[in-house]
Design a protein around this nucleic acid. Structure first.
Lengths: 109, 109
DNA sequence: TTAATTACTTTGACAGACAGAGTAATATTT
DNA sequence: AAATATTACTCTGTCTGTCAAAGTAATTAA
């Protein structure tokens, strides 16, 4: 398991990326992250919903209530146009951050 | 300039790496980071000295006072054996984090 | 009926990073 | 010699992101 404070700051990117693919609800996002990372990273519930609140307040995603299938009622989110533009920025930021950190880390692997 | 909370968690790595090369003092580290990143990232003074305190408390680096050349007296740090081992861990952690984030970011660049 | 799973929410705490202000010594300019 | 710039370090208080812990509620399986 990767320490979460090393992934800190990238959660918005990861989550927005998953919303770019399709509308999703919270629990699904958390499952999807565990699945795709092969359990190398798991987002904590409290963190997840805090991210949603932050993104919604900034109008990068918007919520609507979906159908109740298993268990509790699902709250779906969709990414907004603003959110898509922001994700684009985050992606190029990631490219730059990677370059910078590699600058210091390479030659040590 | 890269946002600092996206580099957060990697400062220990960057600084330990610079100490691996040779003993250095604070101001030098800050200059070196700006230089190597071409000013794309600048560590703030308050942050820098907080990192030193953290690393010293964990016995990953140790301090000694050097000669006074220009300006205020310099406090030098050297990396300890423990620090070297820890850096090794951080480097492999970085490789893994990179993989994980790329998992979500690739195909969007 | 009970337990397990799905799904979301809230509160309070903590750690890392930073702004801002301050101290102090040396070097440069006037 | 005095004023200013630069080098160098320290401290306090604040903000933000993440998380632990606890709780609510609905559905499904035992």
């Amino acid at each position: 398991m990767v320490r979460s404070d090393i992934i800190r700051g990238h959660l918005d990117s990861i989550i927005l990326r998953l919303f770019l693919e399709k509308d999703r609800y919270g629990y699904e996002i958390s499952q999807e992250i565990s699945l795709r990372t092969d359990n190398r990273f798991q987002i904590k519930e409290a963190t997840l919903y805090a991210v949603f609140q932050r993104l919604e307040k900034r109008e990068l995603i918007e919520a609507y209530y979906g159908d109740v299938s298993h268990g509790g009622k699902r709250k779906y989110y969709r990414i907004t146009t603003l959110g898509k533009a922001y994700l684009k920025e985050l992606v190029s930021e990631w490219t730059e951050v990677k370059e910078i950190i590699n600058l210091f880390m390479e030659g040590l692997e």
